[in-house]
Design a protein around this nucleic acid. Structure first.
Lengths: 161, 161
DNA sequence: ACTGATTATCTTAGTGACTAAGGAAAATCA
DNA sequence: TGATTTTCCTTAGTCACTAAGATAATCAGT
């Protein structure tokens, strides 16, 4: 027997633990690829966007452009992207993913999560819709919580300068 | 209209995005508390366990004991734990959480995630049970995926030495 | 007790990812 | 054309981390 409060709190705790574990997974994957966690995150942003430039990557991650140069160096050296000059504005670079190398990473993910994907297929369409709604709500909640923390001045110091 | 495959893949994508966002939240929270993300993680482990020692923390995180010394220094200086010598083995330290300071952090989390918790209370007990089962399965999946990566030799180098 | 090995934490030196500031090259504007 | 802006890179310095070893307490064997 468990109260609704107990259920809700265990649910929240479990989601948190699962998120932490997925972060850990990313770290292990990055190490396996000879990259840093930051690099892998950046690579993910690069593959999602179109014609991503170092400048846009710096904005997206909050890193300085200097740091981004290092990140791009490492990812390029590992062979997952190429620096390609924008022909229309020769100051700019496009960070072009090397598709078949990216596909290697996807394949690793697919293999590692194969059982889980199988499990997902076991749910009915209606259940999947409900879970999807829940997952979106959870994502929104995390975004809101982050914003609340940033603006809410939840703690002492905040802007140190 | 969307196929089951589309549903499953969007679900997995959304879970991943939500996890990433929760990681981001942790980083912002850590900065707010004047700690590093690593420190906050360690603090979490300390509060969960009982009479956690620096050594056990090193094992749990994979950091070296030297790094842990720095982590403990920072958390202690910020006032969230105390170093207490084990009276039965005076080589050892117990990292004792300072309860009311930990409670401050919990209060911040509760405030940031208040709407979300509210939302969870909106689900029926049966739905919560289903979601809980799902969340546990997701956690297990992430653990298994991490292990698969570690042992599966998915990539090249692996044991470098 | 005494000796040597082990255990737990800290210390030190060195590495490398990051920031801040500024430089070089190309584009844009007056 | 010259001045300003934009984009990326370079440089110097900071700091968390690792690796190796110091310090100190405990344990096992004699």
């Amino acid at each position: 027997m468990s109260s609704k409060k107990a259920r809700v709190e265990e649910l929240e705790r479990t989601i948190r633990a699962a998120s932490a574990q997925r972060t850990l997974y990313s770290g292990v994957l990055a190490a396996l690829l000879g990259l840093h966690q930051t690099d892998l995150e950046c690579l993910f942003i690069i593959t999602l966007g179109d014609n991503v430039t170092p400048g846009r990557l710096a904005e997206a991650t909050g890193l300085t452009t200097g740091a981004i140069t290092g990140v791009v160096d490492r990812i390029e050296k590992a062979g997952y992207i190429e620096r390609v000059r924008d022909p229309d504005d020769r100051r700019r670079l496009f960070l072009q993913p090397i598709r078949h190398r990216i596909e290697e990473i996807r394949a690793i993910n697919r293999r590692a999560y194969a059982d889980w994907m199988e499990e997902l297929y076991g749910y009915s369409d209606a259940q999947l819709d409900m879970l999807l709604k829940f997952a979106h709500a959870n994502h929104r909640a995390a975004v809101n919580a982050t914003m609340a923390l940033r603006s809410g001045s939840g703690g002492r110091d905040q802007a140190e300068e």
